[in-house]
């Protein structure tokens, strides 16, 4: 469960990132956050695991305050939240399995991880995670040998190996072609359904959002302007809220970087 309590983010240059955001995401939901670029989608997602700091309010994950967590406590909370990035964020020169295992570092002592001594169970866990996204056979290949879609699946496996209860995905398919987009989104849905992992996904493509989400949150200039089940998120309603079709926006920012 993720609770946002009147969360605001004001950047040091005066830009408003989030304004009085207040909502709750329940376990097992597949929430897609939509909005124009610059609406604060990425800020919202990154404030959950504190890759971005908020300036007011509080975020509570599974009953514990993320906002007040410090040091080891924060790291332990982060370890329970997986994250998937638009640009995959793999170490390209490391092997696939090493990238997946890096999701386990939060569970072990620094010395142990620096020596690379992961227990056998961890290696098995990592291989299983890779199997779940159908790329187990690539385990010992360098990450840069894989295609974009395969790399994104490795990063999903990393989140799985982490044994996260929540997965945050920041534009996970923005740098992928339509076919691999489907595969990656299908993987996310399967994980959500089979393992009951809560999904919070940023997408700029409203069609894709309707297809996979159970609930859609719409953002505009850091404020929530829509929050409801997919059925209510009709084309007319969004055109009304944003003053234009989100489809055009999606087409125009297709390959944009983070």
């Amino acid at each position: 469960m993720i609770e946002f309590r009147r969360v605001s983010k004001l950047y040091s240059n005066g830009t408003v990132g989030l304004q009085e955001v207040d909502f709750t995401i329940h376990s097992g939901e597949f929430v897609v956050i939509v909005g124009l670029s610059g609406a604060g989608k990425s800020t919202l997602l990154r404030s959950i695991n504190r890759l971005h700091e908020i300036t007011a309010g509080e975020i509570i994950v599974d009953g514990k305050s993320m906002t007040l967590a410090r040091g080891e406590e924060l790291r332990h909370m982060r370890r329970g939240i997986g994250m998937i990035f638009q640009s995959f964020n793999l170490v390209k020169r490391s092997s696939v399995i090493r990238n997946v295992l890096s999701g386990r570092v939060g569970y072990h002592s620094t010395i142990r991880t620096l020596l690379g001594l992961f227990p056998k169970e961890d290696v098995q866990l990592a291989l299983n995670a890779l199997a779940r996204v159908n790329i187990q056979e690539k385990a010992y290949i360098r990450a840069d040998q894989l295609s974009g879609g395969q790399q994104q699946r490795v990063s999903i496996a990393r989140a799985l190996a982490q044994e996260a209860k929540i997965i945050l995905a920041d534009e996970p398919v923005a740098s992928l072609d339509p076919l691999t987009t489907r595969q990656v989104m299908d993987d996310l849905r399967r994980i959500n359904l089979e393992l009951g992992i809560t999904m919070v996904v940023n997408l700029h493509d409203i069609d894709l959002a309707r297809q996979y989400a159970t609930r859609i949150i719409g953002l505009r200039a850091g404020e929530i302007v829509f929050d409801g089940p997919v059925g209510e998120a009709t084309e007319e309603r969004f055109t009304h809220i944003y003053g234009r079709s989100l489809r055009e926006e999606a087409a125009s920012i297709g390959g944009e970087a983070l």
């Binding site: 370890r79 170490v91 890096s102 939060g106 620096l114």
Partner: peptide, 24 residues
Amino acid sequence: GPAEALLACGANRLQVMWYAVIPQ
């Protein structure tokens, strides 16, 4: 990116260094 990903996994500074910076 990889450093950010490691941070999100709950890694500490040294672990981020060792897994995300050094291999690069």
